[in-house]
Design a binder for these strands. Structure first.
Lengths: 187, 187
DNA sequence: CCGCTCATGTAACTGGTTACATGATTTA
DNA sequence: TAAATCATGTAACCAGTTACATGAGCGG
C-alpha cells in the first residue's frame, strides 16, 4: 500500500512538480514513461530510479493531483496517470510567477567545486585539468546541439526554449574556462 | 560516539571532499568555520547545516583524512581539524585529473525546469516569468561582481578563478533568457 | 545579571538511491 | 524456447535537513 498523499502535509518538492509536469505534457502515461524521461535526459540531477518514481506517482494520486486508470495486464495491472484539475492548478502555481529568488542562485557545478581547491595538484596538472574539463563540456554540448536543431523545427516551443538553456549553461561554463586558461597562462 | 570512518566502505561524497578542501584551505579549523563557509556561500546547494557538518568531520577524522586536536573549553571541548597526508592525497585525487565525464553534465537549474512546462500558464504571464527570472539573476550577479573585484586583487588565484565561474554561470543563464525573450516576442 | 550572538552538538525525519525480484513481451 | 528487453514494483539504506538543546563569551 502506498503512503498518504502529499496533501496538507507539505508543499510538493521540485521532483514532484517536475513529474506532475511530465504527466501533464505526455498526456495519460505510465510510471515507466515518466522514468524514461529522466533516464534519457542529459542532466544527471535526478536518476529517475524506479524507487523514486513509482511511489511518487502513487503519492501524487493519493493527494488528488493525478487521476489513475488501472488496466489489467496479465496477472498485474498497468496504471495510467493523468493530471487532475487540482494537479494542473498546483503545476501552474509552481511554474509561477512569482518566481522564488532562490531559483536564480548559482547551481551546483562539480567542475567549479574542484576549481576552488586546484592548488592541491601540481602546477603542471592544472592546465590539463582545465583542458580536460573543456573537452568534456564540448562532448556534452555536441549532441545537445544536434537535438536542438530537431526541436527548433517542431511547434512545441516551450520544450525547445527550455532545452536551449542546457546549451547556454554549458557554453557559459566553457566561456569561463577560457578565461581561466588565459589567466593561468599569463601568470 | 561517532560512526566508523568512510575508509573502505565507499568513496567519499562530493560534500565530504569539499569539506576536506575547506579544511585544507583554511588551515586548522573548527567545524563552525567550515559551516560558515557554506552559510556565506552564494550557492544554495548545501545548507551547511550543523547536522551535516559536525558528524561529517568526525567521520573524516575516523577515516584518517583529518587529524584532530582537542582543546578544553569550559565544560566542553573544541576540536580543531587539519588535513592529514592521507587526506591530502584523497583531495588531490578528487580534484583530478582525470575528471569524470559526469562533472560536465548540465546542472540542475530550477528556472529551466519550470521553463519546460511554461505552457501551463497563460500566454500573458509567460513574458513576465522570463522578465522576473532575468531580474532575479541580475540581483544575484551584482554582489558577486563586487566580491569578485576584491578577490581579483588578492594573490590567492584559485579561489578567484573558481568564484568567477558563478558569475559566468549566471551570465550564461541570462544570455539564454534574452534569446528566449526574443523568440517569444517574435511569435 | 540579562540578553544576544558565537559555538557545539544530537535526534528524528525524509526524499531519493541502490539493489533486488519478478512478470510480460519481443527477438533470435 | 531461450535470451534479451520492457515494465512494475519493493526493501534496505543513506546522506543531508530540520528542529531542537545547551554551553560559552560578551556588551549593555
Amino acid at each position: 500500500m502506498s503512503r498518504r498523499g502529499i496533501g496538507q502535509r507539505r508543499r510538493p518538492t521540485e521532483l514532484e512538480c517536475c513529474v506532475l509536469g511530465i504527466v501533464w505534457e505526455k498526456g495519460p502515461c505510465s510510471a515507466y514513461v515518466v522514468r524514461k524521461e529522466f533516464l534519457d535526459s542529459a542532466s544527471s540531477y535526478w536518476s529517475g530510479s524506479a524507487g523514486a518514481i513509482y511511489p511518487l506517482l502513487d503519492r501524487l494520486a493519493d493527494g488528488g493531483y493525478l487521476r489513475v486508470e488501472e488496466h489489467p495486464w496479465g496477472t498485474r495491472t498497468r496504471k495510467e496517470f493523468r493530471v487532475s484539475a487540482k494537479g494542473r492548478r498546483a503545476l501552474a502555481r509552481w511554474v509561477g510567477p512569482p518566481l522564488e529568488p532562490w531559483t536564480a542562485a548559482p547551481a551546483f557545478d562539480p567542475i567549479r567545486t574542484r576549481m576552488y581547491f586546484l592548488e592541491v595538484i601540481p602546477r603542471e596538472e592544472r592546465l590539463r585539468f582545465v583542458d580536460e574539463a573543456m573537452e568534456n563540456l564540448r562532448s556534452q554540448i555536441a549532441p545537445l546541439r544536434v537535438e536542438q536543431r530537431v526541436l527548433d523545427r517542431e511547434p512545441s516551443s516551450a520544450r525547445a526554449l527550455a532545452s536551449l538553456g542546457t546549451i547556454h549553461e554549458l557554453e557559459g561554463r566553457l566561456r569561463w574556462l577560457r578565461v581561466v586558461r588565459e589567466r593561468m597562462k599569463r601568470k
